[in-house]
Computed example of a mutant assay.
Amino acid sequence: MAGLSYLERRSAIEAYFDRTAVEAWSRLTSDAPLGRIRASVRAGRETMRQTLLSWLPDDMSGLRLLDAGCGSGALAVEAARRGAAVVAVDLSPTLIALARQRAPRCPGGGSIEFLAGDMLDAGLGDFDHIVGMDCLIHYPQADMVEALNKIGARTRASMLFTFAPRTPALAIMHAAGRLFPRKDRAPAISPVAEAALRRALVDEPGLSNWRFARTQRIKNGFYVSQAQELRRA
């Protein structure tokens, strides 16, 4: 998707997850048996989800959280169990329907509102924390920074997001991924260099009140992603 605008990329991602990959994504996020490659992705995503959850308060009563690109809703459910009022948004109406179907009744006073739409929609309101797990990895660095800038203006405490680190190993995996039949391919991931991303975030005036906190790279087979925490100064 080289050279595409944010809106064009967003449309391609929505089409893929809402139509092409629904069955595969449903299996990936369930307990169904998988092949070696997708099993490694499932395990990697679970490790990443638990990492991001560990960076959130254990008691989130009275806090509002945006789960951006919520997929099947697993992270949203756990945050709601901690007492958070969660807004879980995804571009795919089909995945939102799956998330609603899978979500149990939330104990602990929390709640989840599942919405199909754009994570950048200002109409979603303000939040204490936002989590964007693997929802920005399809966008180039400039779009990632702009998205964090827009979301950060509506966030009081922390922003947790992941990016695809630019590494030789990841480049090999992407090349192998291109061997899959076109109909099975996910939208292209846009790897970014960690140092360059940090410089771009520091140079963004709208993020001047944010500071780098924890970071963690998760690598499991064909899953490689890096979590970054930004905290409001």
Rank of each mutant, 00 (worst) to 15 (best):
D134H: 00
D67R: 09
R27N: 07
R10M: 06
L120V: 03
L201E: 05
A80V: 04
S54Q: 02
L7T: 09
S92Q: 08
A2I: 10
A171P: 07
A195F: 09
A15F: 08
R81H: 14
L120G: 07
A142L: 10
A103Y: 04
E204F: 03
G44D: 05
E14R: 15
G44I: 05
D184Q: 14
A2E: 11
R185C: 03
K150C: 14
P93H: 04
A233D: 11
A85Y: 14
W55L: 05
C106F: 06
A153H: 11
V89F: 04
R231W: 09
S54C: 02
A175R: 14
R102W: 10
A12E: 10
A74D: 06
P187F: 01
W25N: 07
M144V: 13
G177K: 03
F180G: 07
T47V: 10
L124D: 02
A233I: 09
A188G: 15
A147P: 09
G177V: 08
P107G: 06
D118Y: 01
L136Y: 01
G109E: 06
E229P: 01
A80L: 03
M60D: 02
D59P: 01
R19T: 13
R102H: 07
A157M: 12
G71A: 02
K183H: 15
E204A: 02
V202S: 10
A103H: 04
I172T: 13
F180H: 14
E204I: 07
P165E: 07
S11I: 09
G71R: 00
L197M: 11
E8A: 08
P165M: 06
S225I: 02
S225K: 00
G83A: 04
L124S: 09
S225L: 03
R9D: 00
D128S: 08
I137G: 00
A24T: 12
F114S: 01
A15V: 12
K150D: 14
P93A: 02
A171R: 15
R156A: 12
D134R: 03
S11E: 14
S11M: 15
S158L: 05
G221Y: 07
R82K: 06
R214P: 00
L53I: 14
A76H: 04
D31M: 10
T167A: 09
A186Y: 12
L56A: 05
D126V: 15
H138D: 06
K150R: 15
C106Y: 11
D128Y: 10
A21L: 00
Q228W: 12
G177A: 09
G69M: 00
D18Q: 02
P187R: 01
G110K: 04
S225A: 03
Q50R: 11
D121F: 05
I13L: 03
M119E: 08
Y16I: 05
E194M: 11
R217M: 13
L63F: 13
R81A: 07
D31L: 13
Q50T: 08
R178A: 15
K150M: 12
G35K: 13
R214K: 11
I112F: 12
R199D: 10
R214L: 12
D203N: 13
S158Q: 07
A186K: 13
G71C: 03
L52I: 09
Q228L: 12
A196P: 02
S92L: 02
G117Y: 11
